[in-house]
Design a protein around this nucleic acid. Structure first.
Length: 112
DNA sequence: CGACTGACCTCGC
DNA sequence: GGCGAGGCCAGTC
């Protein structure tokens, strides 16, 4: 059944990613920080790769710090990821592989 | 239990 | 502004 969190960290990461509102995107570093482990962006990516529930954990809403689509282990990869984001109302740059963070980056608390 | 990898991030040239 | 190397965290083999 769906994904079965083995570690607390993974569970936290899933909760954060699942908390991202539709039409917004968050960076790995931001998720890692919200998960309680700032700087563990790689660990977040590791968990996402093992993620089995793309519907419960919209990993496609997670992008790199610069807004570029890091990766996607489902569908056609980044192509599907980009398509999903566009369907949710996320704006993309001219290259077509970068998200407009200043317009779609998720802000959990409205700070900084 | 030990070591390598990986959907990253930041600094340097 | 683009390319390259190093470092940090967690997971999997």
């Amino acid at each position: 059944m769906k994904n079965v969190p083995k570690s607390n960290f993974q569970s936290t990461v899933y909760s954060v990613v699942a908390s991202i509102p539709r039409g917004s995107v968050a960076t790995y570093g931001q998720i890692a920080e919200l998960a309680g482990r700032p700087g563990a962006a790689r660990a977040v990516g590791t968990c996402m790769r093992n993620n089995k529930d793309t519907h419960t954990v919209p990993c496609h809403r997670v992008v790199a710090s610069n807004g570029t689509l890091a990766g996607y282990a489902y569908g056609d990869g980044l192509s599907t990821k980009k398509k999903l984001l566009q369907k949710e109302g996320v704006s993309f740059k001219t290259n077509g592989t970068t998200v407009d963070l200043k317009a779609n980056q998720w802000q959990p608390k409205r700070s900084r």
